[in-house]
Amino acid sequence: MTHTLIHLSSSPYSSLSCKEGLDLALVLATFEQPVDLCLSGAALALLVSNQAPLPEHGKNLHKLLDGLEMYDIENIYIEAGKLEIESGKAWSGVTELDKAQWAKLFSNYQQVFRF
């Protein structure tokens, strides 16, 4: 069985990339393929609490974060120190990796797809 990492790096509301990356993660999980997520760059904005996007902005992808456990997607990684928001104002389910762990992360998977 192949283990997949979905790497989100695009801004959640400036294109469909985050949405379509998450869709792929959900389908992988639905087909019982182990899948983890990691977020960097503009995609970190996905984690900020109290988002209220209008239909013109797109779907509220932040809401899906709480649903990931229903899909058995349990590992959502970010690099420590990159999320410049005080804790309590961001989604709490992420696992922070130090620089070395983050760099190593990408070689732990047979497949890494970036969105």
């Binding site: 509220n60 809401k63 899906l64 709480d66 229903m70």
Partner: peptide, 10 residues
């Protein structure tokens, strides 16, 4: 809550 319709597993 999550803005998706679940498939069987979820």
């Amino acid at each position: 809550a999550f803005e998706v319709s679940p498939a069987m597993r979820p």
